[in-house]
Design a protein around this nucleic acid. Structure first.
Lengths: 249, 249
DNA sequence: CGTGATCTTTGATTTATGTCAAGGTCGCGG
DNA sequence: CCGCGACCTTGACATAAATCAAAGATCACG
């Protein structure tokens, strides 16, 4: 039995397992498994709810089971920047840190698999594989954050939108164990405003650029949220991306 | 003897020690120390030199002994975004990863303390404290990257310049074991163009905003690079920053 | 101590995106 | 089925920053 199997979830791969990687799960011992299993509990949130406020004491770490959440920073005068998107299987929390650095906001209805922090840390101290896996995940997040820095600093509004659509498409495909390619269909888990906050734009600009991409046949829209991408590669070209790299959190 | 003492450097704290933290160093065993010591070698580079190209195989990990370097991404069409600044004591390299994700460029003359990657990884596998310290450092970098995302997405050109100046001032103070406050004097380790690449601006805008801050008495300039900040708190206000948080890498 | 290369400043103009404003669409509860 | 609120789109206009252009520092080197 692996941790993956012990922590059932709607996510195919390693789901709610905070280690989130078959290779690591396979190494887990039964004792640690039981310990983790005893710690876990589920919490659900509604779209729009703020799970965690920046500065709060963090009482747990968690991974997303279903739904989408954002990590968001707010300046004193209200300017807002989203610094991470959390999809199912993404991890949130920082063993070893006291307080949350960002607001965590559910942008859709959300189910989290949580672990009380203290016991999780203790388990981690006893299980080097967990720390290793966490380092790997943190490096992935760092790469994603830096890719986003390129987007924020240098891409045009159109490229920004195309990049975001490509990421949502890719993450959505991953949920269904598919490779991102060809025609893709998915729902946007974000409002126009949330997209704007993530892309460093205004909601009006987001709306205009989405209309432009629709006009140019790069995407089709049914309602406000349901997107069809006829050709994923075309979308990547619009994103101005050489890299194909995955965004994590 | 600690690793810190075994790896002499111009940096006061833990300097070229890749673990870079007294608390961790103090825990290091003599065996590991000797092993690390055997691995280390120094390399120096000239201002403007690219140490590592994105996509290169990484043969070593290293920490900065003196000088400043940038981590930089370049799009196919030449648009450039710097995603990290490396000051003395900062670490570069990714145990467990094959290839460099960014260009690493010396912006001043630079001395690095290097360790061949393979043996470093082996040492790391034997020494949990190193992995733990690396996770801590990576989390710091992630925080810094996300703070920079707020800057890139939402700050004005003037705020961006002020933020960068504040960071350089703070890092420079740290080198001299001083707290950042009051009147501060330092040299800019970046050209106007490198600043622009870091801030998501053009070099002309950088120049204009520096002139404006000078005109408004927020800074004084002697030559192009030598900066006096009469009042660090004033500078922080200009940066629009509530946070005081440290930028790392 | 001049000469060229590199870096920087400043000015004039353009443009992408923000701001302000109005109206449209959709879904939900009464 | 209507009406309300939340969300989205579109238009007109404003503006911060980019672009294009020229000239001024500064420094290394002969």
């Amino acid at each position: 039995m692996t941790i993956h199997e012990a922590l059932p979830t709607t996510v195919p791969q390693c789901g709610a397992c905070p280690i989130r990687h078959r290779a690591v799960c396979a190494r887990c011992e039964a004792d640690e498994l039981a310990a983790l299993d005893a710690l876990k509990f589920y919490r659900s949130f509604e779209a729009g709810q703020t799970l965690i406020w920046a500065g709060d004491r963090m009482e747990f770490v968690a991974s997303v089971v279903s739904g989408v959440a954002t990590l968001t920073q707010v300046m004193e005068d209200g300017r807002t920047q989203t610094v991470g998107l959390l999809f199912p299987s993404d991890f949130v929390g920082r063993p070893g840190r006291e307080r949350a650095p960002y607001n965590v906001i559910a942008t859709t209805d959300l189910l989290m698999c949580c672990f009380r922090k203290k016991p999780f840390e203790e388990l981690m101290a006893r299980t080097p594989a967990i720390g290793q896996r966490l380092l790997e995940m943190t490096l992935d997040e760092l790469d994603a954050a830096r890719e986003w820095m390129l987007l924020l600093g240098r891409k045009t509004a159109r490229e920004k939108i195309a990049s975001l659509l490509a990421i949502v498409a890719r993450r959505d495909a991953a949920l269904h164990l598919r490779a991102p390619q060809g025609k893709m269909v998915f729902d946007l888990p974000l409002t126009r405003e949330a997209m704007a906050d993530y892309l460093g734009l205004t909601l009006e600009t987001v709306s205009r650029q989405i209309s432009a991409l629709k006009r140019d046949g790069v995407i089709e829209l049914e309602g406000k949220r349901h997107v069809t991408v006829p050709d994923y590669n075309r979308l990547l070209e619009e994103a101005g991306d050489d890299t194909d790299g995955g965004f994590v959190g």
